[in-house]
Simulated assay, not measured.
Amino acid sequence: MDDRVSPSGLPPAGLDALRERLRLLYHGRAPGAVRFQYAMMAIDILIVAFFIASPVLRDRPSFLWIDYSIAAVLMLDIGARALASSDVLRWLRQPTSILDLFILMTLLFPLWLANLGFLRVLRLWTLSRSGVFWRPLVRRGYGPWREVVESVTNLITFLFVVTGFIYTFFFSESSGFAGYVDALYFTVTSMTTTGYGDILLDGPWGKITSVVVMLAGVTLFIRLGQAIFRPHKVFYPCERCGLQRHDPDAVHCKACGNLLKIPDPGD
């Protein structure tokens, strides 16, 4: 019996049919659904590029047109994802959904919420964890690089979020490209603890910001180094103790000795 029928025994119509169609597009594996998911991912990448460049473009006459166009696309995407969800309330409670709604608000009111607009770059973090992004890479054997790519993405996301924060709150008088480059330069020198000292943030809050950037930057660099140089592990939760990381050729869980059945990536 077909699950996609209404209580009356007829195929779904109207809103139900639209929701079913959106579910197939966003979560399906058919060629058409995969092409749609790739198209949405390409749009996400363009949106992230705009977010990174927005401090430089903010004074351009075309900025508001681009901003509102992206807001319209994002609004349609959020509405479609909500309809495609089987439980809208649970979907709304997810961190990625909350982040997208906040980003939409900053796009709809760019002049009022510009101070927090730098948080839009966090969409890059959600993109790096998308199944649409990783599914084809895992099929081609790039699954072991997932942790490295996610660590690099965390570092880049942190870099541009902090750069936007510093530009907004400490370099607002140096508007445009020069001020943004100064904020980026200070962020990189602080994260790497190079500390040339030619650009400093004034006041107690400036010093606190510098300390946070240095500590978080060093932590992210260490995390990236661990992901690159430590022995490769596969993610396969043990049914008995829940340990998730194992050697690729492990037969038994090293924590509890439970027999594992790790699938061969080549299968």
Score class of each variant (00 low, 15 high):
Asn115Ile: 06
Asn115Val: 04
Gly117Pro: 03
Phe118Lys: 01
Leu119Phe: 15
Leu119Asp: 01
Leu119Glu: 00
Leu119Gly: 03
Leu119Val: 08
Arg120Thr: 04
Val121Cys: 05
Val121Ala: 02
Arg123Pro: 01
Arg123Val: 02
Trp125Cys: 00
Trp125Asp: 00
Trp125Phe: 06
Thr126Val: 09
Leu127Glu: 00
Leu127Arg: 00
Ser128Tyr: 01
Arg129Ile: 00
Arg129Asp: 00
Arg129Gly: 03
Gly131Thr: 08
Gly131Asn: 13
Gly131Asp: 15
Phe133Thr: 01
Phe133Ser: 00
Phe133Gly: 02
Phe133Asp: 02
Trp134Met: 07
Trp134Pro: 07
Arg135Met: 04
Arg135Gln: 05
Arg135Phe: 05
Pro136Ser: 12
Arg140Cys: 06
Arg140Leu: 12
Arg140Trp: 13
Gly141Ile: 13
Tyr142Val: 03
Tyr142Arg: 08
Tyr142Phe: 15
Gly143Ile: 03
Gly143Glu: 13
Pro144Lys: 10
Trp145Gly: 01
Arg146His: 01
Arg146Pro: 00
Arg146Ser: 04
Arg146Lys: 10
Glu147Ala: 12
Glu147Asn: 12
Val149Thr: 08
Glu150Thr: 09
Ser151His: 06
Ser151Asp: 07
Thr153Glu: 02
Leu155Gln: 06
Thr157Asn: 00
Phe158Lys: 02
Leu159Lys: 01
Phe160Arg: 01
Val161Trp: 06
Val162Glu: 00
Val162Thr: 09
Thr163Ile: 13
Gly164Asp: 08
Phe165Cys: 14
Phe165Trp: 15
Phe165Thr: 08
Ile166Phe: 10
Ile166His: 08
Tyr167Arg: 09
Phe169Met: 04
Phe169Asp: 05
Phe169His: 15
Phe169Gln: 06
Phe170Leu: 02
Phe171Leu: 06
Ser172Leu: 10
Ser172Gly: 09
Glu173Arg: 14
Ser174Gln: 13
Ser175Thr: 10
Gly176Val: 07
Gly176His: 08
Phe177Gly: 02
Ala178Ser: 14
Gly179Asn: 12
Gly179Thr: 11
Val181Cys: 00
Asp182Gly: 05
Asp182Tyr: 14
Asp182Lys: 15
Asp182Cys: 07
Ala183Phe: 11
Leu184Val: 06
Leu184Pro: 04
Tyr185His: 11
Phe186Val: 11
Phe186Leu: 14
Thr187Phe: 10
Thr187Ala: 10
Thr187Pro: 07
Val188Asp: 04
Val188Ser: 04
Val188Gln: 01
Thr192Ile: 11
Thr192Pro: 04
Gly197Ala: 12
Ile199Gln: 03
Ile199Lys: 04
Ile199Ala: 07
Leu201Cys: 09
Leu201Arg: 07
Asp202Arg: 11
Gly203Thr: 11
Gly203Ala: 14
Trp205Cys: 04
Trp205Lys: 08
Trp205Leu: 14
Gly206Gln: 11
Lys207Ser: 14
Lys207Leu: 15
Ile208Gln: 10
Ile208Asn: 10
